[in-house]
Design a protein around this nucleic acid. Structure first.
Length: 424
RNA sequence: GGAGAAGUGGCAGAGUGGUCGAUUGCGGCAGUCUUGAAAACUGUUGAGGGUCAUACCUCCGGGGGUUCGAAUCCCUCCUUCUCCGCCA
């Protein structure tokens, strides 16, 4: 959520930036918000004045009662009836205005950073760099959904029986590979200074709201209605919410957390090869990295996080590229996002395996995650996060790119974790 | 799940209807003293709205109510603790 004061002071700039995100109703909404905020201020002033008067009278009554002047107290009491009524009306008006403002504000996406290129579709994303040679596969190479069956690594049909489509069952070396990747990713992150967190994988409404899943993305989460809890779509939700309603010390920054969790997404998606096999699932595993950073350092931090993820892909010997997302392809809450994509040789396409974003104060404003600066002032921190990494597409590209007539070769760096060098 | 108790500022802990946004201690910060540090002493130390700045307003787990007036009384929800039951 954007900060109201920031919108007031920088209206033109905000509109200009929102245009880069192709946000249509920007001007109407922003104008309405400012208008409502003016209303709010005058209403609150009126309300405060009445409350001040009522407070004064109440104090007087107290003193009169103490002095034993009952009759005078009664006269004062009579004065308050009217005040109370006006106070109640203004209080209600104020609440309703505040709610209107909030309802509008949650519709407005984050303003993109000046570094974000204009554009509408993924085709407009900027390719920053490309690494590693695209593998040429031997004759007879197949996509991962055939490999997982051939080597009995993942049983998609069994998942359908147990739960439904999009809930695969990993078996044998397939299961071990999952566990190896999780441990490897967590080791990389903790070595890089991230503190490991094992959070709940269900969250309450407050948490889902604070990181922006609610109110508008409600349908994308699994909702346990009887207890009003949500299955997390990413570890970002519980981990970032650790810092909800927290005032940090400047010296606490940056906070670096990582965590492995299963992630749950209801999003139905389209059918066909885009969602086949591991490309899109309802339940998958992911290691997430989160940082709470000083506003002056957050963009520097974003680059470091991006390069950290790239380093993992490098170690896994996967060909990858780094994209800077254009305004149209960025998420609602992000100010700047880098995507990392891995080349899938058998599918002949790039697969998004990580998304690293700086949210600036967009999340922390809702979270009320602040820090006390050297000047003693409390201000919002910046939040960032990235996948490091999501397993399914990494598994897909590992299987596809490393397939040989003898079997699937495990990258060197993973062998200590898997305990085997080849899947055959 | 049943019975009882409790939730106050970074922490501990007073406050049971009137001048309480809240005594006090610890911690934090600043200063005095010291070559420096410790100790001691002095001052300072919650958040939000509002204002050029003051005033002023709101917040004592969350929400609602009683009252001229609520941290204090009532209702409700949440959480924690103790005991009982069940259980990985």
């Amino acid at each position: 959520m954007l900060q109201l004061n920031y919108i007031r002071d920088n209206k033109e700039e905000v509109l200009k930036r929102l245009a880069i995100k192709n946000f249509k109703d920007a001007e109407t909404i922003i104008n309405k918000v400012i208008e409502l905020d003016n209303d709010r201020r005058t209403t609150q002033k009126d309300c405060d004045a009445i409350k001040a008067e009522a407070n004064t009278i109440a104090k007087q009554i107290g003193e009169l009662m103490k002095a034993g002047k009952k009759e005078e107290a009664e006269i004062q009491k009579a004065k308050t009836a009217d005040l109370k009524l006006r106070e109640k009306n203004l209080d209600e008006a104020l609440k309703s205005i505040e709610e209107d403002i909030k309802n509008l504000l949650v519709q407005v996406p984050n303003t993109p950073s000046i570094k974000v290129p204009a554009g509408k579709t993924p085709d407009d994303n900027e390719v920053i760099s490309e690494h590693g040679a695209k593998v040429t596969l031997a004759q007879g190479a197949v996509p991962h959904w055939d490999l997982t069956t051939k080597y009995n690594l993942i049983d998609f049909e069994l998942g359908v029986k147990l739960t439904g489509a999009g809930f695969p069952v990993y078996k044998g070396k397939g299961a071990k590979l999952q566990r190896a990747l999780i441990n490897y990713f967590l080791d990389k992150a903790t070595t890089a200074g991230y503190i490991e967190i094992q959070p709940p994988i269900m969250v309450n409404e407050d948490s889902a709201y604070a990181t922006g899943q609610l109110p508008d993305k409600e349908g994308q989460m699994y909702h346990v209605q009887i207890d009003n809890l949500y299955l997390i779509p990413t570890a970002e939700v519980p981990i970032t919410n650790i810092y909800r309603d927290v005032i940090l010390k400047e010296s606490d920054l940056p906070i670096k957390n990582c965590g492995y969790t299963p992630c749950f997404r209801r999003e139905a998606g389209s059918y066909g090869k885009d969602v086949r096999g591991l490309n899109r699932l309802h339940q998958f595993d992911k290691i997430e990295i989160v940082q709470i950073a000083h506003p002056d350092k957050s963009y520097e931090t974003l680059e470091v996080m991006r390069d950290f993820v790239a380093g993992i892909l490098q170690e896994l010997e996967l060909p990858y590229r780094v994209l800077k997302l254009c305004g149209g392809d960025m998420s609602f809450a992000s100010a700047l996002t880098y995507d990392l994509e891995v080349w899938s040789a058998a599918q002949q396409r790039w697969l998004e395996v990580s998304s690293v974003s700086n949210f600036e104060t967009f999340q922390t404003n809702r979270l009320k995650c602040r820090f006390k600066g050297a000047d003693g002032k409390t201000q919002l921190a910046h939040s960032l996060n990235g996948s490091a990494l999501a397993l399914p597409r990494i598994v897909a590209s590992l299987l596809e790119n490393n397939q040989t007539p003898e079997g699937i070769k495990i990258p060197k760096v993973l062998i200590p974790y898997t305990g085997f060098e080849i899947i055959n």
